[in-house]
Simulated assay, not measured.
Amino acid sequence: MLRRLLLVLIVVAIVVGGLGFLKYRQIQGEIAMFSQPQPPATVADTRVKAMTWQPELHAVGSLQAVQGVMVSNQVPGQVQQILFESGDMVEKNQALVQLDTEVDEADLAGLEAARSLAETQLGRNRRLLADRAVSQGDFDEASSRLQQTEAEVAAKRAVIEKKTIRAPFAGQLGIRQVDLGQYLAAGTSIVALEALDPVYVDYALPERELAQIAVGQTVEARVAAYPDASFPGTIQAISPAVDQATRNVRVRALLKNPDHRLRPGMFAKVATLLPEQDQVLTLPREAITFNTYGDSVFMILDGEGEQAGKLVVQRRQIQTGAVRDQRVAVLSGLEEGDRVVSAGQVKLRNGAEVRITEDEPAGSGDAAQ
């Protein structure tokens, strides 16, 4: 029994020793592997470039028609003709709706007959007054009667004219809101009319920017419907007062809109252009690591000592500014011509050796100039 137990202990010792030896060899291999120099990481590079940027004041606003009304009727009547289609382009004074004027024209005929009679009576009294056959009072009464009938005729003609509803200015019509045969009370909405070229964009800027803006200054507007298009314009008016609630000043700019792509009510991003500023240091956006502790880049430097003749990287904290066309302004921390990593930063650490790939990533060129 004792010999059997001793034999088991010897077998267990041999197994444990063998496993320990294998683990020891594995650890030694890993130590040897990690002690070997790591191959250089492959990265893309770019350089800090000085570019000419035009500073801008950014805001959001809304587009407004230079002229826009809801066309309505001044006098009541029944719709006899509709002379437009929804969405039509119309000229100033173009007829849109014709109301029934049959009764008014009959009244006008009666008034014109009364005027004719008044003219005849006045002519007769004028001759009789010369012969002193009528009094001056009778003549004055006949003259007043003629003036009254002429006024009634003019008033009735004005009513008939107002029953032809016309476009007050050139523009584009909206959706028709009346039907043939419908009776319209005075002031009934018929159709919206908007003048689309040019259009206004209204926006607000903080009061601290008031000294940098002036009437005639250039602006550029962008809308979501055409994200790749920019619509230039000029400031037309600046509010004389600052809003006490927001401390903003209201600004109105005029935008040309010959193709009618801009529509009243659109949301717009507006950039007010300031005088050009030269030599802004910039980097592609992808070259910068952004985080809550500050922005940084990996600078590419020539190695020293054991790394002489090789390229190494060093993390550098920088201060960034405005972003434009995927390039970021560098306010401090770098100088023009400094070489930085533009792709592959995740696998890097301070002092790591790198190898530069030949392909430069998109966005590191000069497209923003």
Score class of each variant (00 low, 15 high):
214 A>N: 08
191 V>A: 14
214 A>H: 07
180 L>R: 12
194 E>A: 10
208 R>T: 03
206 P>N: 08
201 V>M: 06
198 P>D: 05
210 L>E: 10
211 A>M: 11
188 T>F: 11
181 G>A: 02
193 L>C: 10
182 Q>A: 14
203 Y>D: 02
197 D>V: 00
198 P>W: 04
183 Y>L: 11
185 A>N: 10
210 L>D: 06
192 A>S: 15
183 Y>V: 13
202 D>K: 04
183 Y>G: 01
179 D>F: 10
177 Q>E: 15
216 G>Q: 03
184 L>P: 08
213 I>G: 02
201 V>W: 01
191 V>H: 15
211 A>N: 13
186 A>S: 15
203 Y>E: 02
209 E>D: 06
185 A>D: 15
194 E>F: 12
207 E>S: 15
213 I>F: 09
199 V>T: 02
179 D>M: 11
199 V>W: 12
208 R>Y: 08
182 Q>M: 04
200 Y>H: 09
199 V>P: 05
196 L>N: 07
187 G>C: 14
185 A>R: 14
181 G>D: 07
210 L>F: 10
192 A>M: 11
215 V>N: 03
184 L>H: 14
209 E>M: 07
190 I>N: 06
184 L>C: 01
194 E>V: 07
212 Q>P: 00
213 I>M: 02
189 S>E: 10
192 A>I: 01
187 G>W: 07
184 L>G: 03
188 T>K: 15
187 G>M: 06
195 A>P: 00
200 Y>V: 00
177 Q>N: 09
177 Q>L: 13
180 L>F: 03
191 V>C: 06
207 E>F: 07
205 L>M: 05
181 G>Y: 02
189 S>V: 04
189 S>A: 12
183 Y>N: 13
216 G>N: 02
201 V>Y: 05
197 D>S: 02
211 A>F: 06
184 L>S: 07
211 A>S: 14
182 Q>R: 08
178 V>E: 06
206 P>T: 03
184 L>M: 14
188 T>V: 11
205 L>C: 03
187 G>Y: 14
197 D>Y: 11
198 P>T: 00
185 A>E: 13
182 Q>S: 08
